[in-house]
Design a protein around this nucleic acid. Structure first.
Lengths: 207, 207, 207, 207
DNA sequence: CATGAATGAGTGTTCATTCAT
DNA sequence: CATGAATGAACACTCATTCAT
């Protein structure tokens, strides 16, 4: 029987999560104390623990929030006229448009997942959902004859998954490089050699 | 003015580094205390600080040691008859043969690089050296007519770099998947669609 | 100016006290939080503080309740045909029949009394009432010629008081020993050497 | 390989234990923070944890120290010409001569034993050693014909154990009463009715 | 009367680092 | 060169209590 309306509680929860994200992004997970987060959120430690039972729970909360965000982004990709283009835009967004801190945080959550099974589970689920969704969309496009894969479709998926993760990793660890340009060129290559759109101009035989 | 012979000093340093690596791999960077490392190395804290000025310096030391190891591995790749095959083997080695802890540590060093410019510099240098080396080798092979790139050579390099990093990332975060098989198939695809060996049986035109 | 009928208030008070006792007995005074008690009682902290102004007040409440219980037990002793037998039964009850948690709680209340004068006062009053009552009863029996004390009657009382407290202390701290048997034998000895019932078979002179 | 001489370490340990005792006696076990103890001992928290691994370990240390003290006291009792007199003096010492805080601390250690098996074990061992020693001494005196028990010797022991504990309990919880006088009278009664010294003037038959 | 969200000082404990020996 | 005792700020987390609703 909550005294405050549920909406108030939920918005408070979100505000705390955002404060935690700012603090984590600024100082890193291990460099951020609960007191820091409290100060950032303008609340007391007691209140913080009313909403999140532990520091790890904050990371889990952020992880879940990201998961929801990615799911939403995926639905957009799903409905896009050109799936490769949509994926490319999504990658540019996370690799270049979002601030560096955002990627750093993602990286640290990954590191945390290596030691914490709960976080690992959240990440695994997100990853699986992502892959399954892309696969369904592309397979649909292939079946509809709008895309032609050059090679085993499963292998192309594995390659694309690794490619996406690798681009994000490099965007995080090598902020000095021009990833936007790199992504554009890589995707052009993918379109040419791995997943040809049949509605585009036909490609010359590579041999 | 060291009074001990430099060899003795250096071997001590290496022993400490190895102890640190064991401890970090077991408990994570933030889960390992300097006392743990001392116990693992069989020395006192005072002695540890004689060889390494801080905990981060240990990570930097490990990072540098890894860099040297990778450079050695690269030279092997450089001299290999088939560069793609050598790269593939190297990837299988780091993604599947080396124990999971090794990858986890690499990941944590990456996370540390995000907060520490010294570590970042070490990683960047290693990455650049790696890329430059691969590029030189492949370009040599292309010029010699032993390999034929299907597309812009720089783009292929970017793709391969991201692909390699992504495969390692996935091997670290998704230890439940069969990465060995995945790598084999991806490299077959790469050989077919991106970097064809002219000494192999010519490929059929994919279109 | 209470608006609820006093009975309702009082029964609520008792219910809270019982919940607190359960929680204290389970986890100890210092191991029990006010939130635990609230959960046990099915009320909110605000309500708890409406009935008891502090955590110590709960202990005081329990102490007072115990006092009333002991007073009731004393009246039974007072009316018993054989006072020593009644005392013995009472001791067996508190030392062996009641669950260990009950004694532990009594012990913890004692510890609290050492730091809190209010609690100390309650305990002292109970102790005095107890002693006075026993004394009156026994003196009555002596005057009536039903019991014959072997020695100074005040000293026998002091000994009996200490004996009773000591038996309870030992029953609390040494739950591994057989206190029931011990009490039976001690009381037989007391009857033989300290307080002889003249209605029983006369005792032989111990010398 | 301790750098400091073992004596220095041990004296430091003892100094910390004494500081802890002062603090516990003043404010109670749960009312004393580790910081308080550090201030009292003039050391830092880190140093405190170098000597004692936890707060409970401090209580255990005090408990063990008390045990040794009691053992020493017992040896004196053992060698005393009149064992009952020696026991009486020992009781007077702990009940009346030692400061109230000492008893309060003993009480709190008892309370802690109810929740902590390690402490309970220490207390049980001390108690058993105490009882065994007294029994051996008294049985020796009985066999030598210097003391004559009036009743079953085991029962007399149980009664004496409970009596001693009860006197200490009462001395702790009722500091307002005159325990010295009470003990003198109780022991006189014991000598008269339970354990007669055959070297003293023979007692008249109580009947 | 009752609620429960909010508080914030306080808890026991850790750990990277220093320095006298 | 090596030691290890000592440090003390910092940590994640708790809990008796309050008060606006």
């Amino acid at each position: 029987m909550p005294k405050l309306p549920p909406k108030r509680l939920e918005s408070r929860r979100q505000a705390i999560l955002e404060a935690a994200e700012r603090a984590f992004a600024r100082d890193g997970f291990h460099g951020t104390s609960m007191q820091n987060i409290c100060r950032e959120a303008g609340i007391s430690p007691g209140t913080l623990y009313l909403y999140f039972p532990s520091k790890v729970a904050l990371i889990a909360g952020l992880c879940e929030r990201d998961r929801n965000e990615i799911k939403a982004a995926l639905i957009e990709v799903e409905n896009a006229p050109n799936i490769l283009e949509a994926l490319e835009d999504m990658l540019v967004h996370y690799a270049c448009v979002e601030p560096h801190e955002r990627r750093a945080l993602m990286f640290e959550i990954g590191a945390e997942a290596l030691r914490n099974p709960d976080i690992a589970k959240l990440m695994t689920e997100t990853d699986d959902a992502f892959t399954a969704m892309i696969r369904a969309t592309v397979v649909g496009a292939v079946d509809a004859g709008r895309i032609k894969p050059h090679g085993d479709i499963d292998t192309i998926f594995d390659l694309l998954s690794a490619l996406g993760d690798g681009i994000l990793w490099r965007a995080t660890l090598r902020p000095d490089l021009d990833h936007r340009n790199s992504i554009r060129r890589i995707f052009a290559l993918v379109r040419q050699q791995l997943l040809t759109s049949t509605t585009d101009t036909p490609l010359a035989c590579p041999a």
